[in-house]
């Protein structure tokens, strides 16, 4: 008969060593893991709760940017005025996960490492050019968010490795971001398509830097460099928006499944990218 152990280490090194054991699964918010346990899809021998690890929960400003503890809940992110001001798109993506109750637990690291192509917390993080501080048995390393998920349910993390922090870069004055997703309902649902757009404007109000990331339209969330490039230098005129939309749709490699057909997903990704870009532009103080 199977046995299930639970540990909650306080040091990152202890956590890494516990996670290196076979049959160990990390627990952050648990909003995916507990569902998998109940359904019998996950059968770990030991659950390593990472919420007690020093630095895993909390938000701090550092070097002009933000450091977010990987297990910080969506509710806490949403209540942090400074983070919301600087990265409204990152926060709105995180806050779309689950329901009000789920927001009390759900974390960005869990959302990222569950490696669902449709994770709502991920595209805006990628568009933000966020990085992860990864702790493992062999020490620490930093990696971009888009390098973590490598396919549905699969990550690039080695045995024992876990994400301790997310790092968001310093924010210039005229910059903002946005995340939009489409679901058939209004909440408690999984994205049919999602898109995060991060814009930095120059003194003249033109786009100096643009990053576009899409979710639920490929095995992992994708950073679409051509889409961002299409917006740079202008003020989101129709031609640049059309070019960006085309680039987004060209990058889509969705499957048809119970949540939507490939054609529908591709089309919607373009619609969402355009709308998210306009929202981010307006938030950044842009005038078309």
């Amino acid at each position: 008969m199977s046995q299930l152990a639970y540990i909650a280490p306080s040091s990152p090194e202890e956590a890494a060593s516990a996670l290196a054991a076979s049959g160990a699964r990390p627990l952050s918010g648990g909003t995916d893991l507990l569902v998998q346990l109940r359904a019998g899809r996950a059968k770990p021998d030991v659950i390593v709760d990472l919420k007690k690890v020093a630095g895993a929960i909390g938000i701090r400003e550092a070097g002009g940017g933000f450091v977010i503890g990987a297990s910080t809940s969506g509710a806490v992110l949403g209540e942090h005025a400074g983070l919301v001001r600087a990265w409204p798109g990152v926060v709105e993506g995180a806050n779309l996960i689950g329901s009000t109750q789920v927001q009390g637990r759900a974390s960005l690291a869990g959302n990222l490492c569950n490696a669902s192509p449709a994770a709502d917390g991920v595209p805006a993080l990628i568009a933000a050019r966020a990085t992860c501080l990864i702790v493992g048995p062999n020490g620490r390393r930093e990696a971009p968010v888009e390098s973590i998920a490598v396919g549905p349910g699969k990550t690039s993390l080695a045995p024992g490795e876990f994400i301790l922090e997310f790092r968001l870069p310093p924010r210039p004055a005229r910059a903002s971001d946005a995340y939009l997703r489409l679901i058939p309902r209004t909440e408690m649902d999984i994205a049919v398509a999602g898109c995060g757009v991060n814009l930095v404007l120059d003194a003249a109000g033109a786009v100096a830097e643009a990053h576009v990331a899409i979710g639920a339209v490929a095995p992992t969330a994708l950073l679409v460099a051509e889409a961002g490039a299409a917006l740079v230098g202008g003020k989101l005129d129709e031609a640049s928006l059309d070019a960006m939309t085309a680039a987004v749709r060209a990058a889509c490699r969705p499957i048809s499944d119970k949540r939507g057909t490939a054609d529908y997903r591709t089309r919607i990704a373009g619609v969402l990218a355009r709308r998210a870009a306009l929202i981010a532009f307006e938030r950044a103080g842009g005038m078309r």
Binding site: P184, R185, T186, E187, M188, D189, I190, K258, R259
Partner: peptide
């Protein structure tokens, strides 16, 4: 209830 979509 995730993919059998009753209204919320």
């Amino acid at each position: 209830f995730l993919d059998y979509r009753m209204p919320v």
